[in-house]
Structure formats: C-alpha cells, structure tokens
Simulated scan of single mutants.
Amino acid sequence: MITCSLTYQIDPYKVPEFEIYARAWIHIITRMGGTHHGYWFPHEGANDVAYCHFSFETLADYEDYRNRMAVDAECNAAYAYAERTRCIIRYDRSFTRPVLDGQPLGDNA
C-alpha cells in the first residue's frame, strides 16, 4: 500500500470553502478506487494548517489514478473550485507506506 499525505496551508478565513473541497476529494478518491483516510482541520495551534491522507494498493494504482484524474470532469471541477475560492494557499505532498499491525518486541530487543 502507498499513502499520499498532504499538508495544506489554507486561508483560515476560508475553512468552510476548504471543507467543501475536502469532502469532494473524499468522494472522488473513493470513486476512483482509493481509500481516503480523511482530512484533519485546524482545531488548536496553527489555524492555517490542514492534513489529508489517502491510499492506493500500489504505486501503479496511484499512477493510474493520476492519469484518469487529469481528464476527469469532477476532479477538474474540484481544482477549479479551489482556485476560484482561493481556500488553499499551498500544499506539500509526500508518499509513505503504512505499518498497520503491531507485534511484541520479542527477539528484536
């Protein structure tokens, strides 16, 4: 599994607009075969930072999604909404692989 993690700098006066954008992408990622892990909005601390994580089974699946999203009307509408509302100031994207199962330290100690 590969997880795309995004850190957004958002306009703190446009959180409602960013939430509309976020909900659209949760729907889009799910529709396009990914697993969306949600968005995290500012609560305490910095009021202009939000996070998002979504996964695809393989890097090839993610690359296929990227190719399909480039021509997908709903994806393009979401991007246009963010540009029009200017709710996103900037974002950083990174890729990680999760470790989701625990085990005792055992002989590794």
Rank of each mutant, 00 (worst) to 15 (best):
60 A>S: 11
90 R>N: 13
29 I>E: 05
92 D>L: 10
29 I>L: 05
66 R>F: 06
10 I>E: 05
23 R>W: 00
7 T>Y: 15
69 M>S: 12
79 Y>D: 13
74 E>T: 12
106 G>V: 08
10 I>Q: 01
98 P>T: 05
53 H>A: 08
70 A>H: 11
11 D>P: 01
83 E>L: 06
23 R>L: 07
46 A>I: 03
94 S>D: 09
67 N>C: 05
86 R>I: 06
21 Y>W: 09
37 H>V: 02
2 I>N: 00
64 D>L: 14
96 T>S: 09
63 E>Q: 14
23 R>C: 05
5 S>A: 15
80 A>Q: 10
63 E>W: 12
34 G>E: 13
47 N>Y: 06
75 C>D: 13
76 N>Q: 15
91 Y>T: 09
49 V>D: 03
69 M>T: 14
71 V>P: 13
102 G>P: 06
109 A>T: 14
37 H>T: 01
106 G>E: 13
44 E>P: 04
47 N>E: 05
12 P>S: 03
76 N>I: 11
25 W>P: 05
47 N>R: 07
89 I>R: 02
86 R>V: 05
1 M>P: 09
82 A>V: 05
38 G>L: 01
66 R>I: 15
83 E>V: 10
46 A>F: 07
6 L>E: 14
3 T>H: 10
10 I>L: 07
96 T>A: 13
85 T>F: 03
79 Y>H: 10
46 A>P: 00
45 G>V: 09
17 E>N: 09
109 A>L: 10
105 L>M: 09
92 D>K: 10
33 G>Y: 00
64 D>I: 10
73 A>F: 04
26 I>M: 07
56 F>R: 01
7 T>R: 15
23 R>D: 04
35 T>L: 12
60 A>Y: 07
36 H>T: 11
30 T>W: 00
67 N>Y: 11
13 Y>A: 14
62 Y>L: 03
42 P>A: 07
87 C>E: 01
70 A>F: 04
78 A>Q: 01
31 R>P: 03
73 A>M: 03
36 H>L: 06
104 P>H: 08
58 T>E: 03
68 R>W: 04
10 I>F: 04
30 T>A: 09
95 F>T: 10
33 G>A: 05
107 D>L: 08
85 T>Q: 10
90 R>S: 12
46 A>V: 06
1 M>F: 09
83 E>R: 07
62 Y>R: 03
93 R>F: 03
35 T>Y: 06
71 V>C: 09
53 H>F: 09
43 H>T: 15
5 S>T: 11
108 N>M: 09
33 G>T: 10
65 Y>W: 12
32 M>W: 00
92 D>H: 12
51 Y>S: 11
2 I>E: 02
97 R>W: 14
35 T>V: 12
38 G>M: 00
17 E>Y: 12
74 E>W: 02
